[in-house]
């Protein structure tokens, strides 16, 4: 197959069925942004290091800059646009707002997706666990402290919400 050859992919993105013909070389990030118009996912390095482009693929955090759209036939992708839908912010997004965990906001979608997966796996993490879990995400503005505190706060909020529902 040549890089420019087109491949049919069918997948769900934020719960909606999508079927597209894509170039084999097209990254998931470009597919989401330019083909589907979901421009909340940003690319920071396109080298897989900074984590800004992180999305969830079948619930697992992945670098959309290093993933080809053609690899995702049958997958379920969630992006930052799929977190809150059109409604209220999620507890994690709320905590980011309350704790001033973003400045320019460019890296924020990647942090939100990574932390969403992390809190699902580890609902009551220690600060050190949070710092380790976020160490694959680069933020140039905040110096991280408020992001760490936001994730801690979201963990508390998430637990409280679960207690209320139980």
């Amino acid at each position: 197959m040549e890089p420019q050859d087109r491949v049919r992919v069918q997948l769900t993105v934020n719960g909606s069925e999508v079927s597209r013909l894509v170039e084999a070389r097209r990254t998931l990030a470009d597919f989401l942004r330019d083909d589907l118009g979901l421009r909340g996912t940003h690319t920071g390095c396109e080298q897989g290091v900074c984590g800004a482009c992180t999305v969830l693929v079948d619930g697992v955090a992945m670098r959309s800059c290093l993933t080809f759209a053609a690899q995702l036939d049958g997958a379920a992708v969630q992006t930052v646009e799929g977190l809150a839908g059109d409604g209220d912010l999620t507890p994690l997004q709320e905590a980011f707002r309350r704790r001033h965990a973003l400045q320019c906001g460019y890296c924020t979608p990647g942090f939100l997706m990574t932390a969403t997966e992390f809190l699902r796996e580890n609902p009551s993490p220690s600060e050190q666990e949070i710092r380790t879990a976020l160490s694959g995400q680069i933020c140039r503005c905040t110096g991280y402290e408020n992001i760490v505190q936001a994730v801690r706060e979201a963990a508390g909020t998430l637990q409280a919400d679960q207690r209320r529902q139980a």
Binding site: G40, T79, V80, Q93, G105
Partner: peptide, 10 residues
């Protein structure tokens, strides 16, 4: 500004 930046609407 946070509302739009948190929801991918930057």
């Amino acid at each position: 500004e946070d509302q739009r930046l948190l929801t991918g609407k930057g």
